[in-house]
Amino acid sequence: MLNQLLDKLERKFRRFSISNLMLYIVLGMAVFAVADIILMTNPNNKVFLIDMIEFDRGKILQGEVWRVLSFVLVPPEFNMIFLAFALYFYWMMGTALEHQWGSFKFNVFYFTGVIGCIIAGFILGYATNYYLYVSLFLAFAILFPDEQILLFFFIPIKIKWLGLFSAFGLVVAFIMGDFQTRIFLLLSLANLILFFGKDVASRCYYTCRRYYYKWFKNK
């Protein structure tokens, strides 16, 4: 159903899709990160660019409307080695997903996540792009489960195991978190739920059913 709808939309709106979207996102993150690192060299400086692009409902309502979208360019941690690795990983995942789906479907996936984060931000007053990129990682893990990366730069591990660990953490956060946390998770991961929710639920159901009959019915 979803694929049929996306195929129809792609035929009509393909020309509006952004090719190499993650390249532009990663370059934007790098620019803001490097700019703030340079600003940090001035001990008297108190203005940082990243503070000016974070999602803040109060400031958006006061007129800083660019924050509605600019928060997607907030980079991860500022350790230069980790930052370089994280940005490369974002680019690699986004490029792989775009090659798998095509530019249009990848754009839909990414911007559905962005819209979910924005809605969560206006409901709860804050938003972060963290879960947006978690959804990117989990989509990559679902589609390319046997891809290997070097954990801590020297331990080879298949991406599916990291994906399962990350998914488990999200489930725990959803169960243990308060109402606001649950709303934020559901909205921020709306793209992942839309694209993979049905398939993952079906796979979990049939896996549980198979082991149930294996362990209990055959005894």
Rank of each mutant, 00 (worst) to 15 (best):
I123Y: 10
C117W: 03
E64I: 01
D56S: 10
E147M: 12
N79V: 04
A139Y: 08
F71E: 02
L69Y: 07
S166G: 04
F122E: 04
F89R: 11
F32S: 03
Y211I: 10
Q62I: 01
L73N: 00
D36S: 13
I123T: 12
Q148M: 14
T207R: 09
L192I: 00
R210E: 11
V68R: 05
F85G: 05
A190E: 00
A167S: 14
V72F: 01
R182E: 06
C208L: 15
Y24F: 13
L39A: 15
I142M: 05
S70F: 09
L164D: 05
K59I: 09
K59D: 13
I18T: 06
F122N: 02
F174I: 07
N79E: 11
Y126N: 08
L136E: 09
A120C: 11
I60H: 07
N107M: 03
V171Q: 05
L170I: 15
K46Q: 14
F13A: 14
Y133S: 07
P76A: 12
T128E: 11
L69D: 08
S70A: 13
W101Y: 14
K46D: 12
F78K: 12
I50D: 06
I25W: 03
L194K: 00
P76H: 14
E10S: 13
Y24I: 02
Q180A: 13
F111Q: 00
E10M: 05
R67K: 12
V26S: 06
A120S: 15
K219T: 04
C208N: 11
S188P: 02
F168G: 12
I193E: 01
E77R: 11
V72Q: 09
A201L: 02
L2A: 04
